[in-house]
């Protein structure tokens, strides 16, 4: 299958479709298939040099490049937002190298590459979410030896994971891990959901969409197939809980969503707004109005950009 035909905008010439050569894509697809077959297991792959630094999502970009077809619609988010530098540049990268259609609408996207968040709107069957992962090894915190962590995974010796949670409670009185909160996938492998806040952990459980994780520097790919059990680790007397927010979103009045704190001035003024900008916009379009909307700085209303 050649990819060049039937694109919506003409891609940059001189590059293969979606930048990576077809051999590399095949190699990565094989890793992805294996990862789907063994949910939560970290599959090593020959990560390529990408035209961006490590830490900017090279793992996620390679996974996206390998699964992208000309008919796909791509959404890229960073911290839930479609318009941060990282999200914008990755979107632009695929627009130029693959010529695919891009969107900010969760519902329209077929492939969503993300750093940190899972969209508030539940993903459906046929949608794929690609996570950018900095450190894929959940046991790294306590066991620095790669040979040993592999063995621990192979033998399902996961006592260490609870030692980490124990330390949290001992130090803070509660499980203070708020992101990269370890989960058990399909009753077998312990997996690091990457820097995603634990607020999003329940969304991984029995998700209708396919979840793929790519770590470029660490050269690992792992996956959660659709409708897979994902359980956040906890103690009987300290059960897993997600963050709750005392106020609704200041812009769209949404409750039960993940909020970011925004500092508005140098006099201690601040507000809490949806981290998922697309979901927030959609709600405002539907007429929802948050408490702060009237006197929100122009920049946050999206009317003009500040200097």
């Amino acid at each position: 299958m050649t990819a060049q035909s039937a694109t919506h905008t003409a891609p940059e010439t001189g590059y293969n479709f979606a930048y990576l050569d077809e051999q590399t894509k095949r190699m990565i697809r094989r890793a992805i298939l294996k990862a789907i077959a063994v949910p939560g297991y970290q599959v090593p792959f020959a990560s390529r040099e990408m035209p961006m630094p490590y830490g900017w999502g090279t793992g996620g970009v390679q996974v996206t490049a390998s699964i992208l077809g000309p008919d796909d619609v791509l959404k890229v988010i960073d911290q839930g937002s479609d318009d941060t530098t990282n999200a914008v540049s990755i979107r632009k990268f695929f627009k130029r190298t693959a010529g695919v259609r891009t969107t900010t609408r969760t519902g329209e996207a077929t492939v969503i590459q993300t750093r940190h968040r899972i969209p508030e709107q539940p993903l459906g069957e046929g949608q794929v979410i690609v996570y950018q992962v900095p450190i894929p090894e959940p046991l790294r915190f306590l066991e620095p030896r790669e040979t040993e962590t592999r063995k621990l995974h192979a033998l399902a010796e996961y006592g260490l994971m609870h030692v980490k949670l124990y330390e949290d409670i001992a130090r803070h009185g509660h499980i203070a891990t708020t992101y990269a909160y370890p989960v058990e996938v399909a009753g077998r492998y312990i997996m690091d959901p990457s820097p995603t806040p634990k607020f999003d952990n329940p969304k991984m459980h029995m998700m209708a969409g396919l979840q793929l994780f790519g770590a470029g520097r660490e050269k690992r790919i792992y996956a959660i197939p659709p409708y897979t059990q994902v359980r956040s680790l906890d103690f009987e007397d300290h059960p897993f809980r997600i963050q709750t927010f005392s106020h609704p979103c200041a812009l769209c009045a949404a409750e039960g969503v993940y909020l970011d704190e925004v500092v508005m001035d140098d006099r201690g003024g601040r507000m809490f707004v949806c981290s998922d900008t697309d979901s927030c916009e959609e709600r405002r379009e539907q007429g929802h109005r948050g408490a702060m909307l009237a006197d929100t700085p122009a920049a946050l209303k999206g009317e003009s950009s500040h200097v």
């Binding site: 006592g159 260490l160 124990y166 330390e167 103690f235 009987e236 300290h238």
Partner: peptide
Amino acid sequence: GNVGERLMAVGQRHY
């Protein structure tokens, strides 16, 4: 945590 590790390794889940 050092003392508790073995307990957690054999499946104890009550902090």
